[in-house]
Amino acid sequence: MATKAVCVLKGDGPVQGIINFEQKESNGPVKVWGSIKGLTEGLHGFHVHEFGDNTAGCTSAGPHFNPLSRKHGGPKDEERHVGDLGNVTADKDGVADVSIEDSVISLSGDHCIIGRTLVVHEKADDLGKGGNEESTKTGNAGSRLACGVIGIAQ
């Protein structure tokens, strides 16, 4: 089992970053940390998408990683996509320092995120509470600013 993974985020604009993942036990939580720069100040949706395909930019990554066919939600919700990591918060300089621990994603097994795409979005994720159909699919997080395929790390 891989215990570490990394993702280099890039987009068409100024947004870029490096996100690290570490899972010490196969059924334990995954620590997610790193930094994203070039964002507007505020909240930005942060999700693992189904495919590791960036051939047409971030759009070819498909929908959120959702092997259990659930509705979109927040990272602490029972009803959520596996890939729903909530929001990252950018400061006035456009930098989001990421520090998350998640017990639904994994670096092995059915919820493995390796080979899938991590995406940072234009807007805040409403965590499935926006009151419309799009909220239950995407959290109304808007366009995909930057993305990268999650790969095994040393």
Rank of each mutant, 00 (worst) to 15 (best):
A2N: 13
T3F: 13
A5Q: 05
V6K: 12
C7D: 00
L9D: 00
G11H: 09
D12L: 07
P14S: 05
Q16S: 11
I18E: 10
I18L: 06
N20R: 12
E25V: 12
S26K: 15
N27F: 15
G28S: 04
V32W: 05
V32F: 13
V32C: 12
W33R: 12
S35E: 11
I36H: 00
G38C: 12
G38K: 05
T40C: 14
L43E: 06
H44C: 11
H44L: 04
H47S: 01
H47K: 01
V48E: 01
E50M: 11
E50D: 05
F51Q: 03
F51I: 07
T55F: 02
A56Q: 10
S60E: 00
G62C: 03
P63G: 12
P67T: 10
P67G: 05
L68W: 15
S69P: 13
R70I: 14
G73A: 08
G74D: 15
P75S: 10
K76T: 14
K76Q: 15
E78G: 13
V82G: 09
G83W: 01
G83K: 03
D84S: 02
L85D: 03
L85R: 01
G86M: 04
T89S: 10
D93I: 10
D93K: 14
D93T: 10
A96G: 05
V98P: 05
S99A: 14
S99M: 06
I100H: 10
E101L: 13
D102H: 05
V104Y: 07
S106Y: 06
S106I: 06
L107K: 04
G109T: 12
D110W: 12
D110R: 10
C112F: 09
I114P: 04
I114E: 04
R116L: 00
R116P: 01
T117G: 09
T117E: 05
L118P: 00
L118W: 02
L118A: 10
V119R: 00
V120M: 11
H121S: 01
H121W: 01
E122I: 07
E122H: 07
E122R: 09
A124H: 13
D126G: 01
K129C: 10
G130V: 08
G131Q: 15
E134M: 05
E134P: 03
S135F: 03
S135I: 03
K137G: 14
K137D: 01
K137I: 06
K137W: 10
T138Y: 05
G139D: 03
N140S: 07
A141L: 02
G142P: 02
G142M: 06
V149C: 06
I152F: 04
A153S: 14
